[in-house]
């Protein structure tokens, strides 16, 4: 169980990394924290010709508080964001969800943006990005663009990132007197979610985002609902997510969790 051979490039600047991606495109992979990619390399599921290590690029290692948003650079590790003093106040949902990402030993190395690039629909960071309506900052040698969360995730492990693009960072809107709730059910502590739910109060009502069920994390906005109307809305949402069976859970169990946890969380944020 050893990786296939690849070249290794340790980029010192963003432009070096972008240059390499421009030249090798789909044959290159960006190596950040490596907590997902390295396992795939070891199993030889992934066999890139070139790894571009971006972790020594200083300009990508930043957590920047702007007026309405926080920008998190590509080489910011999950543990670093978790330790950011303003996290609970500026990004309360992230503060709730981030401790659920893997284990302490993987958060210390894994990056926030790497988790998004991997686009596992059960992962917490993609769910959080979608729930908050954040943006992904993409950059190639030729151009920069911002992609909204809902447009970024294209399917299981697929994103809108082009082969020559690097995720420079993400932008998450700063919470304004919002109320947030997060809950996750997994087989064991630290496992990928069977169902993860994030809820937040919005100006018009409430938003519920669900990970682990559909191929991409999915958010739904409702006006203030309660009683049977809420039950019906959650039931319809649960079915629309297209849950499936696997060795760890059944589709029905996933729908149950969406209905039950969804209701609890909405109750919490609308309280």
């Amino acid at each position: 169980m050893k990786p296939a051979a690849f070249d290794y490039l340790r980029a010192a600047t963003t432009s070096e990394a972008l240059e390499a991606l421009a030249q090798q495109g789909g044959d290159a992979r960006v190596l950040a924290g490596g907590q997902s990619l390295m396992a795939m390399l070891n199993m030889r599921l992934a066999k890139p010709k070139l790894l571009v290590d971006i972790m020594r690029i200083k300009e990508l290692r930043r957590i920047e508080r702007q007026k309405d948003a926080v920008v998190i650079g590509a080489s910011v590790r999950q543990a670093e964001l978790l330790a950011w003093p303003a996290l609970a106040e500026a990004l309360p949902l992230v503060a709730l969800a981030l401790p659920w990402v893997g284990h302490m030993q993987t958060r210390s190395r894994g990056t926030v943006c790497g988790s998004l690039a991997h686009a596992d629909p059960s992962a917490e960071m993609p769910l959080t990005l979608v729930a908050l309506g954040g943006e992904v900052l993409l950059r190639s040698a030729k151009r920069r663009r911002r992609v909204a969360a809902k447009d970024f995730f294209a399917g299981m492990m697929l994103t809108a990132r082009a082969d020559d693009e690097l995720i420079e960072g993400i932008s998450l809107p700063i919470a304004r007197d919002g109320r947030f709730a997060f809950r996750e059910v997994a087989r064991r502590h630290g496992d990928f979610a069977i169902v993860a739910c994030a809820a937040m109060k919005t100006s018009s009502g409430v938003r519920l985002a669900v990970g682990g069920v559909a191929d991409v994390p999915t958010a739904r906005d409702w006006p203030r609902l309660d009683g049977t109307a809420l039950d019906d809305a959650l039931n319809a949402f649960a079915y629309e997510l297209g849950a499936r069976d696997d060795v760890h859970a059944t589709a029905r169990y996933r729908r149950d969790l969406v209905r039950m946890i969804g209701r609890d969380l909405i109750g919490e944020v609308l309280q």
């Binding site: 290794y8 190596l31 490596g34 907590q35 390295m38 790894l51 290590d53 302490m104 030993q105 190395r109």
Partner: peptide, 24 residues
């Protein structure tokens, strides 16, 4: 990266050495 037996400390960070390249 699951069992944790290979965990070491790199620059003060807990690190799965099986998910890390020597070159890194």
């Amino acid at each position: 990266g699951v069992c944790g037996a290979c965990t070491v400390i790199v620059d003060g960070m807990l690190t799965r050495s099986c998910l890390t390249l020597a070159a890194q």
